[in-house]
């Protein structure tokens, strides 16, 4: 591939991205439901991109990532409803809490890889789901509800979400291109070789885990403020599976793959449910189709076609 072509691609991508951002900024004109839907799609996309830092870049499949969404969400809910903090302090606390939990759980999980890592994360996710159901302080099965929405306006809050997600995506993008991001990929592709090169494999995996957990927690925290409520089901394993689904739908080997996947999923679910009560069937069929026909994900497939 020649240099020229590459430059052209970059500029094409830049144009597409600028157009995308302009479009996103105009969303509130399309009505409140659309605003709500796109805000959730953005947060799902952020969570999936964070998940993909661990999965696509570091080669670790977490099947319990909804745990961190829940940690971020519950921290905000507890800070606001139980201790009366404002949303800024609460979101900051959620970031800290997600990072701490990410460090603790990551420390235990990164000793393993592949299916063992997946199942271990699943076990932790289910454990915390169980705790949320049982613990009164977290509202038990009812969860915590009736939180005030920041700025008292869905439209204004949408811009908070949009800005936070864009900034987070930018930070994640910078990380994946930094030497840290390269070390993630080195560990993913060949842990033995990375070890020889002086990269601490476990420490690298742990760093990836913590960053991933923190941004997933941020997505959960912002989502709680959008929904004004949170319940234990946000940590159930099927929600973790949604992140995996969304990532593979868009394409795990492209940075923006999970974002594309997040939007496709959110709109697909929204439309499918309006059309048929068997909407889960539709989602399942799409999932099977993706695996069979677009294993690189939708965005991966498109880029492949574009680049020949």
């Amino acid at each position: 591939m020649g240099e020229e072509v590459k430059e052209q691609e970059v500029s094409m991508e830049t144009v597409a991205m600028i157009l995308g951002v302009i479009l996103l900024a105009l969303v509130p004109l399309a009505g409140r439901h659309m605003t709500h839907l796109v805000a959730s799609a953005l947060l799902l996309s952020l969570a999936a991109t964070s998940f993909n830092l661990l999965f696509g870049y570091t080669g670790l499949l977490s099947f319990g990532h909804a745990l961190f969404w829940g940690v971020g969400g519950y921290t905000v809910a507890v800070m606001m409803a139980r201790f009366g903090f404002g949303y800024l302090e609460s979101v900051a606390a959620a970031l800290a809490m997600s990072a701490i939990m990410g460090a603790a759980i990551g420390f235990l999980c990164v000793r393993h890889t592949r299916i063992y890592f997946a199942i271990l994360t699943l076990a932790f996710g289910q454990m915390f789901y169980g705790i949320a159901v049982k613990w009164d302080f977290l509202g038990g099965s009812d969860g915590i509800y009736g939180l005030p929405r920041p700025l008292n306006s869905l439209e204004l809050y949408y811009y908070v979400v949009l800005a936070s997600v864009l900034v987070s995506l930018y930070i994640l993008r910078v990380i994946t291109r930094s030497s840290l991001g390269l070390s993630f990929m080195a560990v993913r592709d060949n842990a033995f070789r990375a070890e020889f090169l002086g990269i601490g494999v476990r420490a690298t995996r742990l760093k990836s885990f913590i960053i991933s957990a923190t941004f997933t927690g941020l997505a959960g925290a912002l989502w709680v403020l959008l929904e004004t409520a949170i319940g234990p089901e946000s940590m159930f394993w099927t929600h973790s599976a949604e992140f995996v689904f969304v990532t593979l739908l868009g394409g795990p080997r492209v940075f923006l793959g999970p974002v594309v996947g997040g939007f496709i999923y959110a709109f697909l679910a929204d439309v499918a449910m309006s059309v048929t009560e068997f909407w889960l069937f539709v989602i399942g069929a799409v999932l099977i189709g993706i695996v069979l026909f677009f294993p690189y994900g939708v965005l991966g497939y498109l880029l492949k076609r574009l680049r020949g």
Partner: peptide
Amino acid sequence: MGEEYQLLLTFGLILV
């Protein structure tokens, strides 16, 4: 493909 694709395909089967 990787095992994650097996997990995904069979997760799709659950819904179906």
